[in-house]
Design a protein around this nucleic acid. Structure first.
Lengths: 258, 258
DNA sequence: AACTGTAGCTAGACGCTGTAGACCTACAGT
DNA sequence: ACTGTAGGTCTACAGCGTCTAGCTACAGTT
């Protein structure tokens, strides 16, 4: 019955039914375009061609609406909890998360900030889906519950941090030629920030994807070394070897209620 | 004519000169107390017992004022770039950062969010001080500039992420007895989030300090393994020993420029 | 002694914000 | 015909950030 979603609702496309999805999609579009703090209920309503007050039919208040936007981005993060290659799967999730963050940089503040104000159980379910799925992935791979949680925290913690780092370095004035100028580093007193200034070319050549992979290399190697093999001290030397993964055969853990 | 208008809301001694430090300190106090979004220019001014417009004498606008608050917190992060034990020094910085974040949880959104809107060179200098100092620490230890930058990014990325993770899990209703209730996990449909619910006790028993140390163990070990000569660095495993750390007589590059 | 400059602060206003409350309309079920 | 409900609108209010103008107190100059 529904005609295709007809998403491009930017300038008052009227007469469309205003569903929650449309509201959130439009909000996301506006945020992508102008940033979070330029989004007001009235602007959003104007983009929908409606009265501001309809919005409150789909979100209790503005904060809830922003939670919804964060959720719509985060539900795109698919985890396959049946993948036997847990490390590879985590890698893919990490790449996916990075991709989402780069696609919606203006939403990242919401992504990292909103959960700080909301207890776990009250967060939008779409936000918790990846957590649950990763836990399933890891427990099925043989990790204990607490270890699975530990790995989740380590990987996603690193992921949050990486994304924030990468986005921070993205801000620049691309019209400038010299690296120093693009990054605004010329404003820094040379005497106080000699190294930072001298690293301008390196800063400008930041390769987020590679950096992410290297971090994951280290993290995953370290995690398996400390968690799965109880006695093995980590053998350093090589870093990237996504193919081999030590796996402990174990009967799949059933979902137990407490 | 008017004696100071009315009762100072906070502990503001009214007849005090309103300096930038006082403004920022009061703003920080208000944020610690009520959170960032309850801070308005008018409230802040009221806490100072003054007209809102004085604030613009010390900050160009509200965003700049928030930058100032973030800076006042961040300048407390001291790095000793002369410490020969670079890994130990990074550990201490990490612990310090975590301590600051826990002391001012409401400021953390500012800490991670504001740099996203400001190019490196335009950030408040206090914000960049730790970066420069860590770079000095690492280059003095023999790392190349790009490697130093890489290590900085890895450690601080992890640090950002860890702090966000830890603060997220802090939110709860402590009046509830059961872990499930405290975290609000009882609201989640059991069928969809079995693992998450079953891990309530583990979630509740989160030990942020230990988690940070373990992450640093992995990260620092992995970094030294991949970046320097394959000579073994300090052993991971157990963490807390801020006093002394094994030192590596490093050869490659000693850039002692000044 | 009067004049000017300036630093610190205040008063008022403007346009914008989030959202409460009343109200309207169209339609479904009884 | 009556009632309930979902969707939508209008008006209004308190609060927001910040612009402009102005006040006071004092320094230095003439």
């Amino acid at each position: 019955m529904n005609p295709p979603p007809s998403a491009p609702v930017d300038d008052a496309a009227v007469s469309n039914k205003v569903t929650r999805e449309v509201v959130l999609a439009t909000a996301l579009a506006l945020i992508d375009l102008e940033g979070v703090d330029r989004l007001s209920m009235r602007r959003l309503a104007a983009a929908l061609g409606r009265d501001p007050m309809i919005l409150y039919r789909h979100a209790a208040n503005k904060a809830a609406l922003l939670d919804g936007v964060a959720e719509t981005v985060l539900v795109q993060l698919k985890v396959d909890p049946t993948d036997p290659d847990w490390a590879g799967q985590l890698r893919m999730v990490a790449r996916d998360y990075r991709r989402l963050a780069l696609a919606h940089p203006n939403v990242v503040p919401l992504l990292v900030t909103r959960p700080l104000a909301t207890p776990l159980g009250l967060r939008p379910p779409g936000t918790l889906r990846p957590l649950e799925d990763v836990l399933k992935l890891l427990t099925d791979a043989g990790f204990s519950g607490p270890d699975a949680l530990h790995i989740y925290r380590a990987v996603f913690g690193f992921l949050y941090g990486h994304v924030l780092n990468e986005l921070q370095e993205l801000i620049e004035r691309p019209d400038e030629v010299s690296d120093l100028l693009r990054l605004g580093l010329h404003r820094l007193p040379i005497a106080e920030f000699p190294l930072l200034r001298s690293l301008a070319p390196t800063l400008a050549a930041y390769d987020g994807a590679a950096e992410l992979e290297r971090g994951l290399d280290i993290l995953l190697a370290g995690l398996t070394a400390t968690l799965t093999a109880p006695s093995a001290a980590h053998p350093p030397g090589h870093a990237a070897d996504p193919a081999k993964r030590p796996r402990r055969p174990q009967s799949p853990r059933r979902s137990d209620s407490r």
